[in-house]
């Protein structure tokens, strides 16, 4: 799943995109949403959800959330 697709699915559910930037390694995107969730999206298609609101976002993306603190 690419970053545009993730943004489309999450924002359609009323969860605003609040930040989008290339990650420090330059191999993917870091996305932040208004419910506190963050999604790390690799250019190769990997994705990892964390932060407050991660359960809601993971559900929208049909993904398991990353445990808090990991």
């Amino acid at each position: 799943m690419d970053a545009d697709r993730i943004v489309a699915l999450v924002t359609a559910a009323g969860i605003e995109l609040t930040d989008r930037r290339r990650n420090a390694k330059g191999d993917g995107w870091s996305l932040s949403f208004s419910n506190g969730a963050t999604v790390e999206v690799g250019d190769e298609g990997s994705a990892c959800v964390a932060g407050k609101g991660s359960k809601a976002v993971a559900r929208l993306l049909d993904m398991p959330p990353t445990p808090r603190g990991s």
Partner: peptide, 23 residues
């Protein structure tokens, strides 16, 4: 982005105090 070119916040930013979206 969330900020105007002269740094006013016009789209969603998180509160600096809890409850906030940011831990």
């Amino acid at each position: 982005g969330n900020l105007t070119p002269d740094f006013y916040a016009v789209n969603t930013m998180q509160p600096p105090y809890q409850p906030s979206g940011n831990d």
